[in-house]
Computed example of a mutant assay.
Amino acid sequence: METEEKKGYKAPPLGGGGGIKAGIVGGAGYTGGEMLRILINHPEVNLAFVHSTSSAGKYVYEVHTDLFGDTDLKFAAELAYNIDVLFLCVGHGDAKKFLDANPIPDHIRIIDLSQDFRLSQNAKHKTKSFVYGLPELNRDAIKEANNIANPGCFATCLQLGLLPLASQNLLNSETHITATTGSTGAGQSLSPTTHFSWRNDNLSVYKAFEHQHLNEIVQSLHQLQPNFNPPAEGRGVNFIPYRGDFTRGIIASIYTECSLTEAEALKLYQHYYEAHPFTHVTRHDIDLKQVVNTNKCFIQVKKHGNKIFIVSIIDNLLKGASGQAVQNMNLMFGLDEKAGLRLKAIAF
Rank of each mutant, 00 (worst) to 15 (best):
C157G: 09
V292M: 05
G29H: 04
L39V: 05
C153R: 09
F333R: 06
T247Q: 15
L99G: 07
T180Q: 11
D66K: 11
K344E: 12
L162P: 03
M329G: 00
G57Y: 06
F130N: 06
I240N: 10
C157V: 13
F333N: 00
H284G: 11
C258T: 05
G33F: 01
R118E: 07
N229K: 04
N295R: 08
S129T: 15
I313K: 08
E62S: 01
N150Y: 06
L134T: 05
G187M: 00
K267L: 14
V301L: 00
V291F: 06
P43G: 03
G27D: 03
I313H: 00
D84I: 01
Q115K: 13
N82E: 13
A179I: 09
S197D: 14
L67F: 09
Y206I: 10
N138L: 08
K344R: 07
V131Y: 08
L134D: 10
D287W: 11
R342L: 10
S259G: 11
M1P: 08
K21C: 01
N172K: 13
L221G: 07
V90K: 05
L288R: 14
K74Q: 12
K58R: 14
M332V: 03
V50I: 07
D84E: 05
I83C: 10
K6W: 07
E62I: 02
A321H: 11
S52E: 05
G249I: 03
T193S: 15
K207P: 04
H125I: 00
I308Q: 06
S114C: 05
A263F: 08
S259P: 13
Y269M: 07
C297F: 04
I286T: 09
G320Y: 05
G26K: 05
D94A: 15
L99F: 01
L137K: 12
R199V: 04
I40K: 00
I217G: 01
K303S: 02
A155K: 06
N293V: 07
L341G: 04
G15Y: 03
I24R: 04
A347S: 14
K303M: 04
N295T: 09
F239L: 15
F130Q: 02
F309A: 06
G33T: 01
L317I: 10
T193D: 15
G340M: 02
E274F: 01
D70H: 14
G8P: 06
T184H: 13
A321E: 10
E136M: 15
S312G: 02
P192K: 07
T53M: 13
S204P: 09
